[in-house]
Design a protein around this nucleic acid. Structure first.
Lengths: 167, 167
DNA sequence: AATTGTACCCCTATATATTGGGGTGGTCAA
DNA sequence: TTGACCACCCCAATATATAGGGGTACAATT
């Protein structure tokens, strides 16, 4: 990896730590030429997945689009950056567990809903009303009714930013 | 690094490629237990920098905040994801070249402006009007006058998404 | 005032990743 | 329809990173 300071092509690793539940590697690197030190992060990334949209168009999977959709549903809702990151990681893990090179945006939407439901119920309803409304209105209103009855529409408290074992 | 599929702690690298002008390493990994294959990305990350805000409060540097500020200035402006990423990388490189563990938000704002000026002049003006307005109004209006005269307020065309040599 | 967490630093033996070669299939643009 | 580009696949020799130890400093939290 190149040096961010002088752009020399060769840098060496001086320290390696596994962090965040083993999902991330943090390295400390040093430039072979100017000795500049810097940190790097290695993380899993979904690179070769094609998303098939409702109209049939296909496009490369894009983490930012997932994150933006989630942020939209979570607008003005209480959550920390760590909690959000963990949510995205869980959804991406669900995607990877499908072992597919193509997924429909609807399939991804279902995975998102599954995780959102236990993360923040208000966001879940917002998201679901977009992704499901035109498919099973009756089932969705049932769901809504159930939530209202059970919890009086209070959102579930976002969990503390602790990554427990796999989920 | 743990396996995203079965969460086993040990995965092995099967392939390594340096990409994006040497600023990024893409690895292909395989789980020692379930043989699941996945990709990872290693990138430079600024972890130990404290930002001193105008009111004196100090907080850890946060790439997302930088990105959000930029996106705000670039609202409705034409640019690609690659161009945006390259812009953020350049600014972070400028930050690293300062070799400081603390920077004021004003200093970061200056670095942002320097890069934004050649990226998109409309965004530059938007950003500058926030970061500079209360400090040197006369200098800023001079700047504006110059831009209007020289270019009739047309933004510079975002460059094609090619990363040339260091800058 | 004490504790937790994070980034950072250093060290060493062992195991692992890397580089460079060669190659496939798919998508996108010319 | 041809070429470019990207993610992916495989192999083998060499060089490099890793894990695990132990440690400092600082900030935020309790």
């Amino acid at each position: 990896m190149h040096c961010p300071y002088c752009n020399y092509y060769d840098t060496k690793v001086t320290d390696t730590r596994v962090i965040a539940d083993g999902l991330t590697i943090r390295r400390r690197r040093e430039c072979s030429k100017c000795s500049f030190r810097f940190s790097t992060i290695e993380e899993s990334e979904i690179l070769d997945l094609t998303v098939v949209k409702r109209d049939g168009r296909r496009e490369p999977y894009n983490k930012d689009k997932l994150a933006n959709g989630l942020k939209h549903s979570l607008e003005k809702r209480p959550y920390t950056a760590e909690q959000f990151k963990s949510l995205v990681q869980k959804i991406e893990r669900d995607i990877q567990r499908r072992r597919k090179t193509e997924l429909t945006s609807h399939e991804i939407g279902e995975l998102v809903m599954k995780r959102l439901k236990s993360f923040d119920q208000i966001a879940y309803i917002r998201f679901a009303s977009v992704y499901r409304s035109f498919q099973d209105v009756s089932g969705f209103t049932e769901e809504l009714r159930g939530l209202i009855k059970a919890r009086g529409l209070k959102a579930s408290r976002p969990r503390p930013p602790i990554n427990k074992s796999a989920n």
